[in-house]
Simulated assay, not measured.
Amino acid sequence: MRFLICLAALVSGALASPAAAQTRETPYWATIRDSATVLNMRVGPSKDYKIAWVYRRPGLPVKVVRVLEGWRLIEDPHGDQGWVSAPLLSPARGIIVTGEEPAAIRASGANDADIRWRAAPGVVAKLERCEEGWCQIDVDGRRGWVRQGQLWGSGEP
């Protein structure tokens, strides 16, 4: 009997998880999963819809603006919107460097901190944390701080 109760609890918990994921408040940030070598953005929430764009950048940040069953309406850093399959997205936070000039990546979150390197516009990184207008990022194991205003994906979605 105890086994049946445990089994029923496990099954109901497993079935409730996808439903719980559907109730996440939008908008929110996500990234393209590292395992997704190709992500097709479609004009509608089904594989029956035409592919509007193909992404080949794991870790690219996206804004999820709508949830519909196993599909997410996303907005990319250029403002383009379309539907993607939910399992191809990760809840991990990421950023992309914006602007016309390379961003100074500093040793700490201060204007007078040593510059470790510069990241060109378009560089994708993991977002570790933000505080007081500065964000700590990780670019393939190289960590540093950059002004939050030079990043897409770091603020409120």
Rank of each mutant, 00 (worst) to 15 (best):
R2I: 05
R2F: 12
F3R: 13
L7R: 12
A9E: 08
A9P: 00
L15Q: 06
P18N: 13
A19T: 10
A20Q: 07
A20W: 04
T23W: 08
Y28I: 09
Y28V: 09
W29N: 01
R33K: 14
R33C: 09
R33Y: 09
D34P: 05
D34Q: 13
D34E: 13
S35K: 11
A36N: 01
T37C: 04
T37R: 12
V38Y: 13
L39V: 15
N40G: 05
G44E: 01
G44H: 03
P45G: 13
S46Y: 12
K47M: 14
Y49H: 13
A52M: 14
Y55V: 06
R56K: 15
R57T: 12
P58H: 04
P58Y: 02
P58R: 02
G59A: 08
V62D: 00
V62F: 10
K63H: 01
V64F: 02
V67N: 13
L68K: 15
G70Q: 14
W71D: 10
L73E: 09
L73D: 05
I74W: 00
D76V: 01
P77I: 10
P77K: 02
P77Y: 10
H78F: 12
H78W: 14
D80N: 15
Q81Y: 04
P87F: 07
S90H: 08
P91K: 12
A92G: 00
A92D: 06
R93Q: 03
G94Q: 04
G94C: 11
I96C: 05
V97T: 01
G99E: 01
A103F: 14
A104L: 05
I105S: 06
I105P: 10
A110T: 07
D114T: 09
D114V: 05
I115A: 05
R116M: 11
R116S: 01
W117K: 15
A119F: 03
G122S: 04
K126A: 15
C130P: 04
E131S: 15
W134R: 07
C135S: 03
Q136I: 01
V139D: 03
D140V: 10
G141F: 03
G141Q: 12
G141T: 07
R143P: 07
R143C: 06
R143A: 04
G144R: 09
G144K: 00
G144W: 03
R147C: 01
S154D: 02
G155T: 07
E156A: 06
E156I: 02
